[in-house]
Design a protein around this nucleic acid. Structure first.
Length: 386
DNA sequence: TCTGGGGTCCTAGGACCC
DNA sequence: TCTGGGGTCCTAGGACCC
């Protein structure tokens, strides 16, 4: 049985959210972005897009294109709040809602839709309700699976509703450029173009799958199936974050060790705060360092115990940084933590482990550190001596 | 006007174990 | 004494998305 999947995508979400906070912005070209010389556009509203301004464009360039541009600093916790309300609203229709990002979700409306004369009526209602209650515009794609729903919602923006049936794939999907497919970015598109593949139709009919495999890897089959409108209709609910990171680009490139260290400290504190807020711990620490050349390295380390504390994050980050010191000027640094688990599940794992009685002093210290969120071996050792 | 920040997933090589 | 082949874990790098 074919399912009815909705993809609901908020239009220029951050910019719209700012217009809710400050209605005087309405009608003006607005971007949400950082305020430094090195910032790029996070989201542009449609008035700004009319000038050619778009996401990821350096703010300086955007101002060149549109001198009257209103540049607003993002209020990200407000966006989170609004996003939650958005998801709740969709969940009032069906429990089968998959959050795809802060401003989009998939919803399985197979059952819900039966209560409406036409699928369009449900989509209209959702659009109207989002506009009335949250002042947010959205585009909705309606299709038998997630991929087609997503492609459909992209076809009419803003405030569009598009139904895409599997029987229409040749007519509506095949003429599109391969780069319009989700998952096909710049690099992959270029490689495909080199084979003479320009459109989704070209890709669908390309006979030599072994050659495609060199470009698309293990996704080859599923990418080709997508061209024919075959894709997953499975809704994955409530997936916890797998990693969390905090990074910053300096106003000027830095060479001074202590200054860079101070930034790592700040990032560790911020990251730890967020981890604690969401009750997460993790045991793979990573840092990223981008040099003035824009070359970026990432270094990571798996710990035998999970951490959450700012001091522990900072200590591990600095160990990774020290091991990879370079005299090049640094543009950007970041700290990340992955292999996250909720604190409560960590405690369960810990208590299971305790039945086996860790034998070495090292293990005891690590366990103590994990339980107490104590960062350094020194502090745990001193506890043991008491 | 040079190139943010926060994520996910895939690939590939080396270590290590059986 | 010139050499196996899986499987899994760890790390690094990169593509992609919003």
């Amino acid at each position: 049985m074919a399912r009815v999947i909705f993809h609901i995508d908020l239009n220029s979400f951050y910019a719209s959210a700012e217009e809710v906070l400050d209605p005087s912005l309405k009608g003006k070209p607005v971007v949400v972005s950082g305020l430094s010389r090195r910032s790029v556009v996070s989201t542009a509203n449609y008035e700004a897009r009319a000038y050619g301004v778009h996401s990821a464009m350096p703010i300086q360039e955007a101002l060149e294109l549109c001198p009257d541009l209103v540049v607003v600093k993002g209020h990200y916790s407000y966006y989170e709040e609004l996003s939650e309300k958005f998801m709740k609203l969709i969940q009032s229709y069906t429990p089968y809602v998959e959050q795809a990002s802060i401003d989009e979700c998939y919803a399985d409306m197979t059952e819900v839709i039966k209560r409406y004369p036409r699928p369009l009526d449900l989509a209209w209602q959702i659009q109207r309700q989002l506009k009335e209650t949250l002042q947010l515009k959205c585009s909705i794609g309606v299709a038998p699976n997630k991929f087609l729903a997503k492609m459909a919602s992209d076809m009419r923006k803003p405030m569009g509703i598009t139904i895409l049936r599997k029987s229409e794939v040749r007519k509506k999907l095949w003429p599109l450029s391969v780069s319009d497919m989700v998952g096909i970015g710049k690099k992959t598109a270029k490689a495909l173009n080199a084979l003479g593949i320009e459109t989704i139709g070209d890709l669908a009919e390309y006979p030599q799958h072994e050659i495609l495999h060199k470009i698309l890897g293990k996704n080859t089959t599923s990418v080709i199936q997508r061209c024919y409108g075959i894709a997953s209709d499975e809704i994955t609910m409530n997936s916890d974050a797998k990693s969390m990171s905090q990074s910053t680009t300096f106003l000027e490139d830095l060479t001074d060790y202590d200054e860079i260290r101070a930034y790592f400290k700040k990032l560790a504190v911020q990251l730890s705060q967020r981890l604690k807020q969401s009750g997460m711990m993790g045991n793979v620490v990573s840092i990223s360092v981008r040099y003035y050349t824009f070359e970026t390295i990432v270094r990571s380390k798996r710990l035998t115990y999970p951490i959450q504390d700012a001091d522990a994050l900072f200590e591990q980050a600095m160990m990774l940084y020290d091991e990879n010191q370079d005299e090049m000027a640094v543009r950007h640094v970041g700290i990340g933590l992955s292999h996250l688990n909720t604190v409560s599940s960590q405690k369960i794992q810990l208590s299971l482990f305790e039945e086996f009685k860790p034998s070495t002093t090292d293990d005891v210290i690590k366990d103590l550190n994990a339980q107490l969120s104590v960062p350094s071996l020194v502090r745990a050792s001193s506890l043991l001596k008491k």
